[in-house]
Design a protein around this nucleic acid. Structure first.
Length: 492
RNA sequence: CGGGAAGUAGCGCAGUCCGGUAGCGUACCUGGUUUGGGACCAGGUGGUCGCAGGUUCGAAUCCUGUCUUCCCGACCA
């Protein structure tokens, strides 16, 4: 029987959950709020990770690894950062279990094994890293430090959703140290551009680059730059952030260096990260009611080949023919899977690989061998065509590029059509409730107005776009004078 | 943390009101026929019904407690 998928129109949230679980990206686990990332989903993450990792290294960064645990005294050193994360920290208080004398076969926490100082399971690593940088930095010659780490972090969220918000998630966090503010700001912007480049050109997800308002800023940052994407239900998703941390952490951890004039200066910092949340954004950007739709450049399987045969004899002929094709594909760097397993019939396989979002499917049977052709089906448009075996590898290479471009253009068109300029509060609410997407509106620049809008509309300022044109106007809520439009949306 | 729902075979569910020793679909195994959009026939395997206690001759079913998960909300760099 078919794996029943909920459609987007029926229940968008359920559709998303169905895709993640039935598409075998991830599954719920026995641990509240934590997911199991399954091999197919992890392969996707590995592809994303590998591309990003190369981009980081190409911009001069190195990987390192810091501890999972942060002593409480270090964690609280940068006050704003600590306060921002305090209410969602997992805390280790003991280090040993013993047999429970009142409950045979069960264990209990040994009250004798209480830690002198509690350990915070990192929700982010600024504290432990800056405490370390203190020992790495003495002179301007030690700067800059350009380090990234691939890690897991824990944020004890009250409400979780697969990939979008889980208690534990995988990410990378870059932490850099610089001699000047100018240099640190340049780094912050550079990494924002790296993220935008990756998300748009590899994931085919269009993003808006901008800077957060003070309210939405990372705890402990001077400025938070972000890329914002738009999902098919009209809600925005923060896809990545890059923070200019000023000297906040240097001061909190007393990290100084001697400059060329032997003067002691505090170090300037940045941090930047993207997480497995990107996978959630990917799913909600491209997928449809038949299942996942993955962009070719990061799809674990780019091409699946399904043989159609009657009897063992035909199968062997096909196996032989297809092995040549596979060899040619692999030589061209195409990630290909030949599924000649006998326990499922072709129709079942078609549906299965559509559900899993494989960009191209090739079906080949006796009929095709005779005509020296194959059936080529593309996942993004669901179009099927008979194409010649002659030059097939080139045909497939071209089609992969075309699909990649089509996905991006399709998503960008949708996104652009869902940026709406509004002038009045009535329009603001109407667009929000009926059309969704980003709303470009004037805002008087105060946190009070921002809070009020959040309360009234459940919409937040996603960002102030970079290179935002100045334009005199009136705040959409208060009518006060405003110098520029900002982007509002309901968000994940 | 507030509200709701659910825990019975790998997965999805019925049975619970009205107590009598567990069933359906799918998956899985065997054999056969099949194979161009989620095949069909036949025969099988698999669960002491989340956990603990109570009522009863007898509990998936009634009572008490407890644990867990999901959904909605609040919260969310």
């Amino acid at each position: 029987m078919a794996k029943e998928l909920t459609t987007r129109a029926q229940d968008y949230s359920q559709w998303y959950n169905d895709l993640v679980i039935k598409g075998e990206l991830a599954d719920y686990s026995a641990v509240r709020g934590c997911m199991v990332i399954k091999p197919y989903g992890y392969a996707l993450w590995e592809n994303m990770r590998d591309v990003l990792d190369k981009m980081f290294k190409d911009t001069g960064h190195q990987n390192a690894y810091f501890p999972l645990f942060v002593p409480k005294s270090l964690f609280e050193a940068e006050e704003k950062n600590a306060e921002g994360f305090a209410k969602e920290c997992a805390v280790v208080t003991h280090y040993r279990l013993i047999a429970d004398p009142n409950n045979k076969g069960k264990l209990m926490v040994d009250p004798e094994a209480k830690l002198e100082e509690e350990l915070i399971v990192r929700p982010t690593s600024e504290a432990i890293i800056w405490n370390t940088y203190k020992t790495w930095i003495q002179s301007y010659r030690d700067l800059p430090i350009l380090v990234n780490q691939w890690a897991n972090v824990v944020r004890w969220e009250m409400r979780t959703r697969l990939f979008l918000r889980t208690a534990e998630f995988l990410w990378q966090e870059g932490h850099t140290a610089h001699a000047t503010a100018v240099e640190a700001i340049a780094e912050t912007k550079q990494m924002l551009n790296v993220y935008a480049d990756f998300v748009e050109n590899w994931m085919a997800v269009p993003v808006l680059k901008g800077v957060k308002t003070a309210n939405e800023r990372f705890a402990g940052a001077e400025d938070t730059y972000c890329i914002e994407a738009l999902m098919q239900d009209g809600k925005a998703l923060q896809a990545g952030t890059s923070h200019f941390l000023g000297q906040n952490f240097a001061k909190a951890f007393d990290v100084k260096f001697s400059d060329q004039n032997n003067k002691q200066e505090y170090v300037w910092a940045t941090s930047w990260g993207v997480s497995t949340r990107l996978i959630g954004g990917l799913v909600m950007t491209h997928s449809d009611d038949e299942g996942l739709v993955l962009p070719p450049r990061i799809a674990p399987i780019q091409v699946v080949i399904v043989p159609i045969y009657k009897g063992e004899e035909q199968k062997q002929v096909l196996d032989e023919k297809v092995s040549e094709m596979v060899k040619s594909f692999k030589a061209a760097g195409i990630r290909v899977k030949y599924d000649n397993s006998d326990h499922a019939r072709p129709g079942w396989k078609f549906a299965e690989y559509e559900l899993k979002g494989v960009p191209i499917r090739i079906a080949i049977g006796a009929r095709d061998l005779e005509n020296k052709q194959v059936e080529l089906a593309r996942r993004d448009t669901k179009e099927k065509a008979a194409v010649a075996m002659e030059g097939l590898t080139q045909t497939v290479e071209n089609l992969l590029v075309e699909i990649q471009n089509n996905l991006f253009e399709r998503a960008k068109k949708y996104r652009d059509e869902h940026i709406t300029k509004v002038e009045t509060w009535e329009e603001f609410m109407q667009v929000l409730d009926t059309k969704g997407g980003f709303i470009s509106a004037h805002w008087d620049g105060t946190a009070e107005t921002e809070d009020k809008i959040k309360e009234l509309a459940k919409a937040t300022i996603r960002c102030i776009p970079l290179d935002n044109p100045l334009e005199d106007g009136k705040c959409v809520l208060t009518g006060n004078a405003s110098t520029q439009r900002v982007l509002f949306a309901r968000a994940y």
